[in-house]
Amino acid sequence: MGYFAKSPWLLHYDGSSCNGCDIEVLACLMPKYDVERFGIINTGNPKHADVFLITGGINTQNIDVVKNIYNQMGEPKVVVAVGTCATSGHFFSECYNIIGGVDKVIPVDVYAPGCAAKPEMIIDAVVKGLGILEEKKKKMSPK
């Protein structure tokens, strides 16, 4: 992919993460990694977002919140699961309150494992997600 056809906006939600992955997501937006120079910005509004970054596994309380945010996002959209908790549930899947990874409730396009996922990994995952976003867009547009 040579250049981004659009400036992708991110939405970040903390599922049941330990904070480790959240602060790494935030660190991507900070001066050292600074993804804003690629036009990637973090928004708080699901309707504005193209990429849904989710950290932490799914538990009984947040399952509806995650589904709700996902459904509010406009098409096309990409879901990125950040951290081992979000990709598979980590060892927390043995806890009584954890259902598992994010893909148990919503379709996930890119997995970025790691505990915590490093900023390089998160940026890489988002860039991969953008490719998928483009493809989804092509499929949507009428011939």
Partner: peptide
């Protein structure tokens, strides 16, 4: 309660050395 995972119960399932990681 949105991030409740139930970590404390893991001590029943994992040996005590591993709880440091938890």
């Amino acid at each position: 309660g949105f991030i409740h995972r139930g970590l404390e119960m893991l001590c029943k399932k994992k040996p005590f050395q591993d709880i440091v990681l938890v």
